[in-house]
Design a protein around this nucleic acid. Sequence first.
RNA 1: GGAGGGAUGGCUGAGUGGCCGAAAGCGGCGGUCUUGAAAACCGUUGGGCGUUCACGCGCCCCGUGGGUUCGAAUCCUACUCCCUCCGCCA
Length: 426
Amino acid sequence: MIDPKLIRENIDLVKESLGKRGDAFVNLAKLTDIEGQRRKLIQESERMKSEKNALSNEIAKLKKAGADAAGQIEHLRTIGKDIEEMERRVKAVEKEWEDMTLVIPNIPHDTVPVGTGEEDNTVAKVWGEKPQFDFDPLAHWDIGEKLDILDFKRAAKITGSRFTLYKSYGALLERALINFMLDLHTGEHGYTEVLPPFMVNRETMTGTGQLPKFEEELFKLDGLDYFLIPTAEVPVTNIYADEILREDDLPLKYVAYTPCFRKEAGAHGKDTRGLTRQHQFNKVELVKFTAPETSYDELEGLLLDAEDVLKRLNIHYRVSLLCTGDLGFSSAKTYDIEVWLPGQNIYREISSCSNFENFQARRAKIRYRKQGGKTDFVHTLNGSGLAIGRTVMAVMENYQAKDGGIVVPEALRPYMRGITKIPAAS
RNA sequence: GGAGGGAUGGCUGAGUGGCCGAAAGCGGCGGUCUUGAAAACCGUUGGGCGUUCACGCGCCCCGUGGGUUCGAAUCCUACUCCCUCCGCCA
């Protein structure tokens, strides 16, 4: 949620930022109007309550003194009725206000390039080089089926489209990457590992911004108001919902492995082959809670921590800075890490690292106590570190050998029983 | 699934209808003392919202939502969560 003060005091900034996102918010006038109404009604109702409290105290005193208070009691009775009516109006307006503010996206940071879509993103850095092959590199789905380590057909039989059955070295590679990343981030980057619930309630989903606007993207349990998480960001960021943290404890850094579940409702017919876009995929996620002053430095650090995974695997990638038009709903600034996939001849997003500033903290009520005792909202950040399925693709396509096998990146060997190569099909 | 008990401020824990936003202790912060620290003593110490240039003033919050009452942390009710015992179970 953006700061309500902005709506009141700087509606032009809100208008401008929404414009930059290409997300024209037609009813800003109405929102300003509701905000005015809301405050007017609150003031009026508080005035009435104040009167009620004074009268109530008076009655208490009279009663204590053994005096008669029938007149005051009668008066209070009528005030009470008026207050009830006023409360109804306050609640109605506050509901309306909340419904509107919860669907307003975050304000982009000043350093975010203005643009309308993917094509306006800028390349922030490039690491490594495209590998050269003396044969035509295959896409991972071909490699996977040839080696019988990825089985898309049977997964479709078991469940449906956009699921994968990993087999043998495929399953081992997936598991190795999870462990490799968790060990790297906990052991060398200072993150604390958590293993959160994979389904969460509606409030939690609202806290990080998935709800109320994106319910059609989520798998919901039948008969329960629980949802399967689309990313570990949701349960992990909400660890401190409704809490006040100590300034000395910041920044707090967590890493979590979870599966992620997404409907991919708007992606019919897109990326239908291979591991690219699945209803269920694994991810190791990094989450930080920071003081507002340091959050942009922490974003750069988070990005480096995520990049480090690919560096150690020695896989070429570039980092793009998303423009205003491509920025996610809750984010103020996002870097995407795009990994090189020689089998498909494309760069593909493998991590998304964002600073949400206090947008999520405000929704989830995550605060910290500053020097001097005042409380303020923390800044929340997160980034994939990395998406496992897409890393599997990257390893398979970048490390494929002429004979059809896959060389195991050195960093991964300790996690794969020491083997140096996934052997070619016999 | 059955039976019972509970939910109060950072923590422990009083409070069963009328200055209770809430005793007390611990913790935290400030001070006295001390070369410094500890101890002791004194003081201070919840959050949110509205209003105000500010001091301040007002409203709301005792798990959550309803209800009773002139008045609710206290009574009723539904829900949620936690604990104990029994059953079942990876």
